[in-house]
Simulated assay, not measured.
Amino acid sequence: IGVTGSKGKTTTATLTAHLLKAWRADTILAGNMRISALAQLPLIGPDTPVILELSSFVLEGLGAAGLSPAIAAITNIYPDHLDRYGTMEAYIAAKAEIGRHQNNHNTIVLTDTDDALVRLAPAMPGLRVWTGVHAPRVPTEGSVWWDTDVLYAMLQGGTVAIAQRTDVQLAGTHNLANIATAVALALRAGMPHTAIAPALRAFTGVEHRQEVVTTHDGHTFVNDTAATMPDAAVAALTSLPQPIIWIAGGADKKLSFECLAATAATHAQQIVLLQGTATALLHDALVRHGAGDRIIGTFDSFEAGIRAAHALPLRPATIALSPGCASFGMFRNEFHRGEEFRRIVSQIIAEAG
């Protein structure tokens, strides 16, 4: 099972593995979340369920070899990595490799509210399974969708209730879409639909993705360092509890900040910017959208930025690291950035006694 997408691929892949492990304890998760697939080989047998999170970079290599997973999903397509690909067309083509080399016995899971995926679908020879936060326009066998607070699936030609919204611990509409995709993948892998809801209740999320680190002195610290693109930061700002003190900025991936700045203007009460090659562009976009007076400064020290956020009198509040940018320059990668956020927050709390 392979999972890709601009946003949500780690959460979707991890949740798929979590669901399948409740049914098949030998399930393996590996790929782009820093778990080597090669290192897992001794644990993999001929029928072991294996879930791989696949980046566009890895998919380029699979495409060159004419390979696609037997069961695959693309969570969504948003502008990303344009510093590498140059155009959206080239980026989408790399993502499409996950299903381009399937046959008609394979399965591709797509979201029918994503126009890019709808356009890609005819090039995918596998069985198309549509998912989403609303009923698909054309439900197919295995489709999974939310209707109000109930998760449904089309199984053997009929509609079956799979789970309730109260079974879900994740916040945000984007995570409801991730859940629908993960459930569709688990069902296609053979998991009984009656086993989904109990397993879903036990899933609390993935580190570095809207991860609540702690609450202290009226501040809830949220580590969303994996939001390395503007649209991911939009998802955080629109789903986290208000008011929000937002920590953002970093390295440039040649992406537009207009939508993110407009969202911040209505969802972020105070803004702390981190120095990076994209930060001046983000700053100017925030000013254009009327949020310039909420920027308390641009910091070349990560720790100084976090301490400045904590020193603000706004309480209760969510202090959210959701950068909307890559981490290169100040950190080794986005995970290093998230680990440093946790360390600094722990230090601040320890100093407070």
Rank of each mutant, 00 (worst) to 15 (best):
D147I: 11
V129R: 07
E97R: 13
A73D: 08
T140Y: 02
T148R: 13
Y85I: 06
T111M: 04
P46W: 07
R137W: 02
L82F: 01
A90V: 10
K95P: 00
E89H: 13
Y152L: 10
D147W: 11
L117I: 02
V129Y: 02
L151D: 08
N103L: 05
A64I: 15
Y152A: 00
H105I: 01
A65G: 13
M88E: 12
M88D: 07
R84P: 02
L62Y: 14
A116K: 11
S143Y: 09
R128S: 03
Y91G: 01
V129E: 06
P136A: 08
L54W: 02
S68D: 05
P79Y: 10
I74R: 00
V138L: 14
H105S: 11
A65W: 13
A123C: 14
S143V: 03
A94V: 12
I77C: 07
A116C: 01
V58R: 15
G66E: 06
L43W: 12
G61L: 15
A93W: 01
H81S: 10
M154H: 03
D47L: 12
Q102A: 05
D149F: 06
Q102N: 12
D112L: 01
T87A: 02
R128D: 06
P125S: 12
N76F: 08
P139I: 10
P125D: 11
Y78K: 05
R84T: 00
A153Q: 02
V144D: 00
A116R: 11
Y152Q: 10
N76M: 06
H81W: 06
L127M: 12
I71E: 00
W145R: 04
N106F: 05
W145P: 00
P69D: 07
A135L: 11
V129I: 15
L52W: 05
A123F: 15
L82A: 05
P125G: 05
E60A: 03
H134G: 09
V109L: 04
V133M: 09
W130K: 05
T148M: 04
K95N: 06
L43Y: 12
K95D: 06
M154L: 14
V58G: 12
V50L: 13
L151F: 10
L110P: 02
R100S: 08
A153I: 03
Y152N: 06
L151T: 05
T87K: 09
D47W: 04
P125F: 08
Y78A: 14
V129K: 12
E141T: 08
H105L: 14
